[in-house]
């Protein structure tokens, strides 16, 4: 076993890699960061194709 200390600050994605993931964001809260995240959530959720 090789134990390596790593940084948690940086995720694996970079550049144009990756895509949106639907994780439900609270509709109300106390911070601007949350309000911005919720606005982005609504924008992306509206793009979902729900056809089955």
């Amino acid at each position: 076993m090789i134990v390596i200390e790593t940084t948690a600050a940086v995720g694996p994605g970079f550049g144009d890699a990756g895509h949106w993931w639907d994780v439900a964001v609270p509709a109300t809260g106390d911070t601007d960061a949350l309000a911005q995240a919720y606005a982005h959530y609504l924008t992306m959720a509206a793009r979902q194709s729900l056809i089955n």
């Binding site: 200390e5 948690a8 609270p26």
Partner: peptide, 29 residues
């Protein structure tokens, strides 16, 4: 088998998700 254990002192992935969802770092790291 060979184990590669990456130690970032907590649940780093969910911490980033928490912040990305507008939350504050809490109960992960």
């Amino acid at each position: 088998f060979t184990v590669i254990l990456t130690d970032n002192r907590g649940y780093g992935c969910i911490n980033r998700l928490q912040v990305g969802c507008g939350g504050v770092p809490f109960n992960n790291m």
